[in-house]
């Protein structure tokens, strides 16, 4: 049995939406290199919809796969829908994560939400 599901390995090996958005409307950063995971999410928002979502991640296979999946799930969603993406949903979409890697899915959704909150603060 491989350690990760095929879906995790796919998103880890060929991550979607990697990169930065130079004129991002919101940026969210969680984790830090000392604990081994760090994620930065960038969102571009137009008419309440997440037009583009990109990320940069330092971390293990699960952390990278989670980032890729969160970005894919959030893209095209309204702010309200994107804020409803939970860590559990991400793990399910990835075909499950090993128990000791579940915290990686927490990081992913949190980084996305932080980026959206950053946008909301700025546009107040």
């Amino acid at each position: 049995m491989p350690f990760y599901s095929e879906k995790v390995m796919d998103h880890f090996s060929n991550p979607r939406n990697v990169g930065e958005i130079p004129d991002a409307d919101g940026i969210g950063e969680v984790g830090n290199p000392v604990c081994g995971d760090m994620m930065t999410f960038y969102v571009k928002i137009k008419d309440n919809v997440l037009e583009d979502v990109k990320f940069k991640t330092f971390g293990c296979g699960a952390a990278i796969a989670v980032s890729s999946m969160v970005a894919e799930m959030a893209k095209g969603k309204t702010i309200e829908e994107a804020m409803k993406i939970t860590n559990a949903m991400v793990a399910v979409e990835l075909g499950g994560l090993p128990p000791n890697k579940m915290h990686c899915s927490n990081l992913g959704a949190d980084a996305l939400h932080k980026a959206i909150e950053n946008y909301q603060q700025k546009s107040k």
């Binding site: 950063e29 969680v30 830090n32 995971d37 128990p99 990081l107």
Partner: peptide
């Protein structure tokens, strides 16, 4: 080199 933070320091769950 980026210093730790301002990101969140997540408490890892131990099994």
């Amino acid at each position: 080199r980026q210093k730790a933070g301002p990101g969140t320091d997540y408490e890892h769950e131990h099994n």
